[in-house]
Every structure is written in structure tokens, then in C-alpha cells.
Design a protein around this nucleic acid. Structure first.
Lengths: 195, 195, 195, 195
DNA sequence: TATGAATGAGTGTTCATTCAT
DNA sequence: CATGAATGAACACTCATTCAT
């Protein structure tokens, strides 16, 4: 699963350029963009893209995996910042801040939205592994928030996941978004009534 | 807007077969499906599809318009069933039942989801008009529900629309869906705390 | 070669309508026009066109044949109007007037031009027969003009035919045509120098 | 206008093969020939044709432009070979020899004929520029010939252009051509009577 | 017999992937 | 190894011709 050999410096540079270009372009246009466009933006030949990623979908997944990994890292930090025994307010804040990060990130990246909503994408093993890490973190945060009596206890990870996707879709659907849709979803998640 | 002449029997039959096939296939795969596939499933030649619908997008819109019109009709019935002066419980029930219909319908039809989220589709005048009707009905129902103090008053039609899309996306994202995501969104919409 | 049976009145009427429409449309756009367009303009179904003409090309030829027959008739009149023993001036006039008719007619009808220049058209037996009649008349007129010492004697029918086509092409090629190209060709045909 | 970088050897080879095939096929059949046929004759895939020429029409124009450029070069040489102060006989010869080249070339190439007569072709800027060069050269030659009292002075470039097209059409129309049609047109152009 | 709907092969064009240079 | 040219299978759409009504 790991690359067998460390890449040569120029190869590593090219891989990075391709990923950067793919990041931009996939975020802006989703899976639909032609691969040649990515190669052009990366300043490399199409063949070079294929040297590093066996298919276009693999490149797409690499981009998405990177994003998921970033999100996971943010989630880990949120978890780490929580006091061992739950301070309810801090837990609540950490939980919803992390949701905000996820929703905002996915909301601004066509690729993530595509991947999450499964629009014509079949995620592979490696991506699924990365996604599992994210889910693990999210599960922990959810449990903590529920333990702190901040989030309703009848929902599980799958529900939360679905709701994040829902929030992303809601945000995407609005030209000038007020953010209220997201707020409604958060409110629905809370144990307590809105003040 | 109405066809000038009644179609011949065979033409009507084939048009119906095409629409039925398009319904199925678009629902299952969205706009991305090749037109030949639709023709094949309908048991007609590709040319026949084009006799009835000038472009692939026109066919897509016909399917989507039909769905939207059905939804609008359901919405109108819901409105009609409401007592003039608002019975809060009845109003609430009518409102959320209609949301259920929308979410369930769109949730099982890729095409509606695509159309609603505007995924690579440019809707034409006629479809937009149909969509406007649906929005009008939805606006009325929302107003009634808000007047009956059932739904929070800080959200408007656009927010609600976004949330429906969010609920659809949430449902779609779950293989075995428990329906809780939808419930969370509904709860977020209510004025009152959950019991 | 003649139709086996006299057509019923309505059939004859339809045939005429189709021919009239084809005349117009082929003249304006050449062979490229879709057959449905002709049927529409004739106010009949596509099937009706095929009842009277086995292929699109046959219809095209019918139109062209008609035109050629008209030209032939004009040519015959020109021949008939000539005095037995050649009056040089009258012969010259008759000859060039007939050329004028041919060039003007073909010049304003894309179909004739197409047919004459052989643009993607393979003329069939029946049309060729009609064309042979025209050639016969033209040959007579040419001989008479040559006998009257009005037209150079080194050219034959084939040359003359080619020059008519050339004049047509020349006329067609000019947006605002002055007619001088035609004049140059006529002058080249004459025995005598221009005054 | 010039390609920014020299093409790779294989690309140059294929581009040449495509142009050569297009030359042949367009010359034989005009614009109507399917692009796949050209690709097949060139021994390349259809995509390769599109790598070098963005549309079928662009390829057509490239072929036609090449032909026109060759003609223009020949015309320039003819002009250059003329003595400053007009030697009437030399001027006449140069003029008519150039006409011969044009007529012969266009006469054997359907594409040029199509392009010249504007049969369903919309020429683009670049081709029009090339054509303008040819017209400039032709104008110069015509002026010189008229100044040398060799060609009648009542005709202008447009007339001459039309007559060239006429001569081409005349030649095309004859299976075994005697060349006399061309001669007649030339004679019509001269000031002096034929000897 | 007329109608116009159905057919289906064919067209230009795109793009993921492979391969010669 | 990188390059970018070549490939070829799709795809949307058109239209001459056939055939059910």
C-alpha cells in the first residue's frame, strides 16, 4: 500500500505539482474536468500524471484522501484539546466547530461533495481506509458531545455523517447562502431547545 | 404549451415508453446515462426519442418537470386540506408530511436531485415555470406553518429549499437509512423543543 | 418509362404539389435540403413523396428534368423562329438569346447548377434522355449559328456545353453580378472581333 | 500564425500524412467526405486528425489555403519575371500562363472549386487573408496586362475571378476535355481579335 | 392511399489511456 | 523518466427510407 521506494526528487516534485493542480481543478469543477487540463495546469505531460496515478479516478481519490486526512487532523486536534472529564461548553464548541470545518471545506470543494454524495464515484480501498480514520475521530467527538449532554443521543455516526452531507448539499444549493440551513441542522442535533 | 393535435396511438405509446424508460434510467443514474441506453430500454430507435424530445436535455427536463408537477399537486392538496383558520396540529402535520413526500421522492431519483442541486443542468423556461409553481406552494405551506407557530420564523423559502436538498442528500448517502437524519432536520425546523 | 396508368386526380395533385415544393427548395438550397422539409412545404407526408418518387435523388432528377424540358422547349421555339435560309443577324440573336435563357435559369437554380456541375449527383437514364433532347436542340442552334458565320467553327457541342456551365458558375460566383463575365464568354464565341 | 514550437518528428509525419490524405480526398470529393475516411486513408486515428486541426472545416481550410498559397507564389513569380516597362508579348504570356495554372489546379480539385464557389463553406479569417494575397497578385497581373493593351479594360478583378471559376467549371464538366472552352474564355478576354 | 412515426446507420467531436520519442 | 502525440471507443444528433395506422 505504501510506495515501494522513495521517489527521486524530481518525481516527488512532479507528483506534488500534479496534486496541487488536481486539487484546484477538481475543487472547482468536480470529476468532470478533462485530465489534459490538469496536466496542463500542472505544467507536465499527461503521461506524467499516469506515471503517478494509474487512472484519473485514482488521482481524484488521492485529492479527496488528502482533504479527508486534513479534516482528520483537525478533528484529532479538537479531540486533543478537550479536557479528560467533559467540560460541557468546551465539548459542545469543539464538536460544532469541527462540523463547521467539515461543512465549509466540503462545501467549497466540488470533489469532496461529489465523493461524499457518491456522484459517479466508486471509492477504493485506500480512500476508504482514510475515511475510516475520519469516521473514528468523528465517532469520538460525537460520543464526547453526547456524554456531555450536548448532542442528542439517539443518533449514531451514520446519521451524523448523513447530516454533514446534507448540510454541505444545503449550502451548495444556495447562491447567496445565509448559513441558516446549517444552523437549523445544528439545532436539530442539540439536546437542549434553542434559547 | 399544449400539443396542437392529439398524437397518433402508436406515437403516444412510444412517447410513453420513452418517458417511462427515461424515468427509470435518469432516476437511477442521473443525466449521465447515454441516450442510446434509454432508447434501448424503451425498445425504440434513437431517432424516435429525438422525434419526441428535441435534445437529451429536453427529455431530462420532461421527466423532471413531471416529477415536480406531481409534487406540486400533492402540495396543493395539502394546502387545500388545511382549515382556513389554522389548526396548529393539522398545519404542522400537513407541512411535514409534504416535506416527507418531497424528500422521499427526490431521494430516490437521481435526476431530481441533480436538477435541484443544479449539477450540470441548465433548466429551461418551461421547467423553471413548473418549479416556480412548486416554490409557490411550498412558500404557502411554510407561511401557514410559521403562522401556526409550528416552524421557526427566521427561515425563508430559500433556507427551506436548501434544507430539503440537504435532507435528500442525507438520505441518499445512507445505504440502510434509519430516517433519523431527516428527523433531525425537521426538529431543527420546529419552534418548540422536542418532547 | 411512361407511368403505366393515369394517376387518380388526388394523386396527380399531390405529385404536382411535391414537385412544386421540390422546385422551390432545391432551387434555393440544392440537394442538401432534407426531404422532410420538402414534404412539409408540399403539405404532404414524407411517405407520399416516396410514393411518387422512389428516392430523394429521383425527385431531384424529376425537378431537373422538368427544368431541362422547359429549356428544350424554349430552344425549339428559337429554332422554329429561324428562317430556313440563314439570316445571319436573326440567327445570332436567336443563338445568344437562348444561351441567355440557359445561363439565367441555371444560374438562379442551385439544383440545375449542382446537376450540371455534377456536384455529388449521378444522373439516371431518364434524365440523361431529357438532356439528350436539349443537347440535340443546342446542337442545331450551334450549327445554324456557325453556318451563319456568327460563331466560331472550331468548337463543338461539348465545348459549348462546358461554356454554358462556365457562364453559370461565373454568374453564381459574383455577389452583385455585372454580367460582364457572361459577355466575355459570348465574345469569345463569336467569329468576328468586337466592334 | 507560425506554430510556436517545432513539432516532434512523429507529429510532423502524421500531420503531413493527414494533410496528404485530406488533399487527395477533398480534391476528389469536396467537403462532403467523412472525416473518418480521411483518417483511415492517412492511417491514423480520428483523434489524431483532431489534434492537428480543431474541426473538419479547419482541415479543409488548411488544404485550400495551401493550394491558394501555391497559386499565389506562382503568380508572384510571374509578376517578378515581367520587365518593368511592359513588353506586351511577355506580359500577355505571363498573364495567360497564370490563368492556366489557376484553372488547371482548381479544375482538378473539388475542394478549391467548392471553396471558390462558396459551396457550403464559410472561410475563416486566415484563409480569407491568404485569398486576399492571391487576389492582390491577380489584380497586379490584370493591370499589367491591361496596360500592355493585351486584355480588355472593361473588366475588373471580380469579373476575372468569376471567369476563372467559369473556366474551372467548364473544364470539370468535360470528361475528355479538349481545352477549347478555356481558349474561348481567354479569347473573350483579349483586346485584339483572334488571328 | 396518405400520413407521419420509427428506424438505424452515419457524422463530427471528445477524452481516458497508451506508447513512441 | 518525462513528454505529448496517437488511439479509439463513446456520445449526441440527423436524415433517407420503411412501415404501422
Amino acid at each position: 500500500m505504501a510506495e515501494s521506494r522513495p521517489l527521486r526528487a524530481d518525481a516527488r516534485r512532479n507528483r506534488a505539482k500534479v496534486l496541487a493542480a488536481a486539487n484546484e481543478v477538481f475543487a472547482a469543477e468536480g470529476l468532470a474536468v478533462p485530465l489534459d487540463e490538469i496536466a496542463r495546469r500542472a505544467g507536465v505531460g499527461a503521461g506524467t500524471v499516469y506515471r503517478h496515478f494509474p487512472t484519473k479516478e485514482a488521482l481524484f481519490e488521492a485529492v479527496v484522501s488528502d482533504r479527508i486526512e486534513s479534516l482528520t487532523a483537525v478533528g484529532r486536534e479538537a479531540l486533543a484539546s478537550l479536557p479528560e472529564a467533559g467540560d460541557a461548553a468546551a465539548t459542545e464548541q469543539a464538536f460544532f466547530r469541527f462540523l463547521d470545518v467539515m461543512v465549509t471545506d466540503a462545501g467549497s470543494k466540488m470533489d469532496l461533495a461529489d465523493a461524499l454524495t457518491g456522484a459517479g464515484v466508486d471509492l477504493q480501498q485506500s480512500t476508504l481506509a482514510v475515511a475510516a480514520d475520519l469516521r473514528a475521530v468523528l465517532t469520538d467527538l460525537l460520543r464526547r458531545a453526547q456524554a456531555a449532554d450536548t448532542v442528542r443521543t439517539d443518533i449514531d455516526l451514520a446519521d451524523l455523517h448523513a447530516l454533514v452531507i446534507g448540510a454541505v448539499a444545503a449550502e451548495r444549493s444556495r447562491a447567496g447562502h445565509s448559513g441558516l440551513a446549517r444552523q437549523v441542522i445544528y439545532d436539530g442535533l442539540r439536546t437542549a431547545p434553542r434559547p
